[in-house]
């Protein structure tokens, strides 16, 4: 999985490999990662999630080998 911006800083890395149970959702993975970081837990409602570079709903189930990205709200442009 990939972590960006503040989440990358909190985790100390931009990419992690995780073994998760079958039928885990993007939100399940978020909750697991956020266990370690209280600031991330507070961002549960605002976090953007993408699987294989497409935005997904938090309830979306992952399938084998997919890349999940957890992202704070975007702030690009100017």
């Amino acid at each position: 999985m990939r972590l960006f911006a503040r989440y990358r800083e909190l985790a100390g890395t931009g990419s992690l490999e995780l073994d998760v149970p079958a039928k885990s959702t993007a939100l399940d993975v978020f909750d697991r990662v956020a266990e370690s970081y209280p600031d991330m837990r507070s961002m549960r409602q605002s976090t953007l999630m993408a699987i294989e570079s497409e935005f997904v709903k938090p309830q979306t189930e992952l399938t084998d080998g997919e890349e999940l990205a957890l992202m704070p709200p975007v702030s690009g442009g100017c």
Partner: peptide, 13 residues
């Protein structure tokens, strides 16, 4: 530009 600011995964510090 308006849409970019909403949906493109880029962050500024």
């Amino acid at each position: 530009i308006d849409t970019l600011k909403q949906i493109v995964p880029i962050w500024k510090k």
